[in-house]
Amino acid sequence: MTDVSGIAVGQAEAAGAKTGVTVILPDSRAVCAVDVRGGGPGTRETDALDAHTLVDAVDAVVLSGGSSYGLAAADGVAAELGASGRGFALFDMPGVPRSPVVPSAILYDLANGGDKAWGASPPYRDLGRDALAAVSSGPVALGRAGAGFGAMAGTHPGGTGSASLVTGEGYTVGALVCVNAFGSVTMPGLDDVYWAWPHEIDGEFGGGRPPAGWQASPADWGAAKVNPGVRENTTIAVVATDAALTPAQARRLAIMAQDGLARAIRPVHTPFDGDVVFALSTSARPLPESGAELALAALGSACADTLARAVARGVHAARTQAV
């Protein structure tokens, strides 16, 4: 994700509670859109991202564990950004603070065995502040990190994944995902072969391949969660690009990027998941004046492939780490 110039990422965890928060922070306000496909989403400020609304850019995006408690992580981020003078304002008025726009999405990790006896003081507001304080343009920690710290991907450990790609036209796309899916990221009977294997680059998630002639049974979901509970799943993600996009174009990018989840998780977008994908544009490089929509289609396809890789990379890293 941080290979996209102008994008920084911060992560914070509460190890005892087996939960965490991830903040995606653009250097300056960025165009943002969202696409929600899961049946049990938990979000904040996503309505403000519609192309017809007043606000056409955001100050940060927050991903969090903790189910509905985790939405408070964005409060901590918004408070810190507002205190530093960042945010939206129609007019600059003395004594009137700007309003940071910080959309967020959460996943369910409340039943993962961590200590959630926090009473009336859940840790997420502080975790949001900590993640913001940790933002960096360096490599993103994969696996048990940030909002994916306490996640499960089917019956495998879930986690945070990230990947990037430079398109043939020279645009950079990046993806960050926290995988807590009901579905399986590996193929039935092939525990080390990921559904995303056709998109793998340089053996980044193990290099496993299905044997010649292998076929999946339509009824075999492999390592999916067999007893999903209400709101106990969800894969949440952000894709970003340096291409200059309008809010409507960013929405198309988010829609196309969702196909990356379908390439990497089976089944996906179920009634038990709250799958959400945000799309960010730093607007550093304009689309071509001629053929802009074709360029957007290529970007969307690249984002889907990159998100599929990020899913497998995150789970692959988590499987090698202690829970």
Rank of each mutant, 00 (worst) to 15 (best):
V21D: 08
R129L: 01
R285D: 10
S217Q: 13
P218D: 11
A33Y: 00
L127W: 01
L107C: 06
A196Y: 04
P267I: 11
V4L: 07
K116C: 01
A302W: 01
V276S: 04
A181S: 15
V58K: 03
Y108H: 13
G113Y: 04
T172S: 13
V177C: 12
R313Q: 15
H199M: 15
G183Y: 02
G76A: 13
R125C: 11
G38R: 02
A243Y: 01
G260F: 07
I201W: 13
D59E: 13
C178N: 15
A145R: 10
E200M: 14
L165T: 12
A60W: 07
V173L: 11
T270F: 04
H269D: 14
D126E: 15
A248S: 14
V277D: 03
S28D: 15
G300C: 12
A78Q: 03
K18S: 06
H156D: 15
L296G: 05
R231L: 12
A145D: 02
G20F: 07
A120Q: 04
F88H: 09
T19E: 00
D220Q: 11
D109A: 03
A284E: 14
I265G: 05
V323H: 07
E289W: 06
T43V: 15
R252Q: 14
P94D: 15
W221L: 15
D192T: 13
G291L: 13
D191P: 10
N180G: 06
G138T: 04
G65W: 00
D75R: 09
V135M: 06
D109P: 04
